[in-house]
């Protein structure tokens, strides 16, 4: 059975269909010409009026046939491309289900393990506190995973709240980090705004926080350095604000620069089971950037050499569309030079 499996392969079926169709076109034309010439000979032999027997012109028949075949060919090609895309999506979804199951099962396993340990043993108070913290982290991880799926639904169906408020992004990111620093205990995160300017921008707070959370957790998740480091730097380039998120993580190949933003795409190889995560973090981050009229790009010098994720936001468009007059007055005005180094 395996030996004839190639016969059902979509590429073989596609090529075979095209050959069959092209052959049929050639044969139709050939037979038509044969019949026409036979008929022509008969007309001459029996002296029949030429227009009575052959009213239509040969080239019209050939043209019509060719157009029909071209339409069929286009149809086959379109179905083939859709089939390939469906297969690719199916594979990605399969990977996603496998890996997302892992992402859900891991915190549940940890929670169950510690709860059962507490039932079996009397632990010292300090140990209890330590393990309770672990459990709290696990519950946060669980809710984060669930939220990611829910948010994916919201973003894809565009059913998020259209509430954009003018926000100074540099302090916003610093406050966000301060509020969530317990999640990045072992990471050294540095924020830097060398120009000292204020950067007011209309943001959907919930979505923008999600973008930041995805980028920061990715830094920790895809990092095997002894000390996880992240540097967030603000830079104004012409009419754009660029926020660079550089890390010392596992990096990626040049070919993966765009792929990593694809839905369900995961760093690492799924076939050897080193791939982890949901494959949704950067996809969501890119979509959130687009919702804010911006874009996300990524760059890396190669595996093991860290990565730089850049969020680019247009400053001019924003000023025309939204923003309170008060905020506009402050925009671009240099304040004191901001630099914050946190552990």
């Amino acid at each position: 059975m395996k030996q004839i499996k190639w016969f059902y392969h979509p590429i073989f079926v596609f090529i075979f269909s095209i050959i069959a169709l092209a052959s049929s076109l050639v044969l139709y034309i050939y037979w038509y010409m044969e019949v026409s010439s036979g008929l022509d000979a008969m007309i001459r032999k029996f002296n029949i009026e030429y227009e009575q027997a052959l009213r239509s012109e040969t080239w019209v028949v050939i043209l019509v046939l060719s157009i029909l075949v071209a339409i069929i060919l286009f149809g086959i090609f379109t179905i083939f491309v859709y089939h390939l895309k469906t297969m690719q999506l199916y594979r990605l979804q399969h990977n996603f289900i496998n890996n997302f199951t892992h992402e859900l099962k891991t915190p549940v396993t940890s929670l169950k393990l510690y709860l059962e340990t507490f039932l079996r043993h009397e632990l010292a108070r300090e140990d209890q506190i330590r393990y309770i913290r672990y459990m709290l982290n696990d519950t946060e991880r669980l809710s984060e995973n669930i939220n990611r799926i829910l948010n994916l639904g919201h973003i894809e169906s565009k059913s998020y709240a259209e509430e954009f408020t003018e926000t100074d992004l540099y302090p916003f990111i610093r406050i966000f980090y301060e509020n969530n620093r317990h999640l990045f205990e072992n990471a050294e995160i540095k924020t830097d705004n060398p120009s000292g300017n204020t950067f007011f921008y209309p943001v959907n707070t919930a979505l923008f926080e999600m973008l930041l959370m995805n980028l920061m957790t990715n830094t920790v998740k895809y990092n095997i350095s002894e000390k996880v480091r992240m540097h967030i730097r603000f830079e104004k380039q012409k009419n754009k604000l660029c926020i660079f998120f550089s890390d010392n993580g596992i990096g990626f190949n040049r070919e993966e620069r765009k792929k990593i933003f694809r839905k369900f795409y995961q760093a690492g190889r799924s076939e050897n089971m080193t791939a982890k995560g949901s494959g949704l973090g950067l996809f969501l981050a890119q979509n959130i950037a687009r919702i804010h009229k911006g874009k996300m790009t990524a760059d890396s010098k190669g595996p093991g050499k860290g990565a730089v994720f850049t969020l680019t936001l247009p400053l001019q468009k924003r000023a025309k569309s939204k923003g309170t007059p008060e905020n506009r007055k402050n925009e671009g005005k240099p304040e004191k030079k901001n630099s914050d180094h946190r552990r």
Binding site: T106, L113, T117, R120, H121, D127, N137
Partner: peptide, 15 residues
């Protein structure tokens, strides 16, 4: 690689 699980197992096996 999941340090919470690894530590939980270590604790129980040590006990």
């Amino acid at each position: 690689d999941e340090i919470h699980i690894a530590e939980g197992l270590q604790l129980n096996l040590s006990l």
